[in-house]
């Protein structure tokens, strides 16, 4: 029967783990969503203008700059990860099950899309710092920026897990305040020195703490680097495991 159908020569696509077309369109889709752009770009920039530019020294401005770079990146990464909630609610995940797409490709594409999108708030924040008088050694800019970006990928896994957990179109409305709380406890809005010793101890176990310490470390020369690394690794493992578990539950239920 197929012989009666014309099968014009189409495009051959290698079965790689990453799908470049999907990645490109997914990133474009995220950047097209006005709400995501407001939360990941406009808000961190507004915060920096409100609390960063007013700092007296260039070093303090650089500190605030890196804080809000981490914050913007973690919101961006979470948004992309959590977009699976929208895709599940809208039946897109089901549509994908009618294609040969492998789950590993879907998840890998989401994580890379999160990484790509998270670059934007970090770059914008560093640029903004440069033109508003943030002062820091070049090494602190580069290392701080890269760590803010990479560390935020913990939150891509966090977003994924939440996207599979919350069956809602409005996942980010729930996660926005949660991320603000994480940012607060991670010392991104107020330096942790202002907290009581007990609260500082509690804060060191929260997900944004490790990224915050690592991003600021070269600038300040302070902070427990080993503890921060343990924090990042531990939360990455927790969120990736949760995503995998919830993903499996999701595909079984259909």
């Amino acid at each position: 029967m197929t012989t009666t159908l014309q099968r014009p020569a189409g495009t051959e696509v290698p079965r790689a783990v990453l799908n470049p077309t999907y990645l490109r369109l997914d990133v474009r889709r995220v950047l097209r969503n006005r709400r995501t752009v407001v939360f990941t770009l406009v808000m961190p920039v507004a915060f920096y203008f409100a609390f960063g530019v007013s700092q007296e020294t260039g070093a303090d401005r650089a500190y605030a700059m890196l804080s809000f770079a981490v914050y913007g990146a973690m919101v961006a990464a979470t948004s992309v990860g959590a977009s699976v909630a929208v895709e599940r609610a809208g039946g897109w995940s089901r549509q994908l099950r009618l294609t040969p797409l492998r789950p590993v490709t879907y998840v890998a594409t989401k994580v890379v899309a999160a990484a790509v999108v998270a670059v934007v708030p970090v770059a914008v924040q560093l640029l903004l710092g440069a033109v508003t008088g943030a002062r820091a050694p070049v090494r602190a800019w580069v290392v701080g920026g890269v760590l803010a970006w990479l560390g935020s990928l913990v939150f891509a896994a966090f977003g994924l897990a939440m996207g599979y957990l919350l069956p809602s179109e409005n996942t980010m409305q729930v996660l926005g305040p949660v991320l603000a709380l994480f940012a607060m406890l991670g010392g991104l809005f107020v330096p942790l020195d202002f907290f009581s010793p007990t609260l500082q101890t509690v804060a060191s176990f929260t997900p944004a703490y490790g990224v915050g310490v690592l991003a600021h470390h070269v600038l300040t020369g302070s902070g427990a680097v080993l503890g921060a690394v343990v924090n990042v690794v531990a939360w990455t493992v927790v969120f990736v495991a949760a995503s995998a578990l919830l993903f499996r539950r999701d595909t079984q239920r259909v």
Partner: peptide
């Protein structure tokens, strides 16, 4: 359509 096409090894244009 472009996105869906990218998920298959071979498709119509």
């Amino acid at each position: 359509v472009e996105l869906t096409a990218s998920l298959f090894p071979r498709t119509q244009p």
